[in-house]
Amino acid sequence: MGLLNRLNDPYEGGGFALGTVEDILNWGRSKSDWYLQFGLACCAIEFMAVNAPHFDFMRFGTIPRTSPRQADFIIISGTVTLKMAERIKRLYEQMSEPKYVISMGSCSNCGGPYWEHGYHVLKGVDRIIPVDVYVPGCPPRPEALEEGMILLQKKIKHEAIFNKRKRIAEEDRKLGLNYQSNI
């Protein structure tokens, strides 16, 4: 947008900036995402270290919220077991749109070290909820999680808000995915 580059230009009666409403809304949404305070296993300790002063997660505009009704996104950090999977699905359904999911660590990406003989482990949280960003590692370094957050911010910035279905269908047709739709 370049809005901040024009602060020293002399415009009479204030300044005008040209842009789309969607850009401004997406800019605001991506820089102040609030997450649900939720940690499962070892990756949750690394997540606490990211919040601590050395790595400082709050500079991305994120604040922990305790209730899923007030949260924008959720970070699944740790192994998802079959007993816990139903509760995670219910937490995800309680969040209101628009909502995003970051899957942190090997265990929630694909089952992790327990993929072969774990009879009680869900092999990847994307079997029950849709995931936006995958962060690999066991546990991932704090810098890797911060890169995951930056990728999520980029994804939100380029999201369509108005006429969403029609524009997504047009993009897919340009990529060569022709499917039947009644738009």
Binding site: L82, K83, E116, H117, Y119, H120, L122, K123, R127, I128
Partner: peptide, 28 residues
């Protein structure tokens, strides 16, 4: 440790991992 409606005793040598549980696929 296991859910309350789990079937079988997992640490026995002749235990077979179930194929699905409550609609979720269990093996990799």
């Amino acid at each position: 440790l296991n859910p309350y409606d789990w079937e079988g005793h997992p640490l026995r040598k002749d235990y077979v991992t179930p194929e699905e549980y409550h609609g979720m696929k269990v093996p990799y």
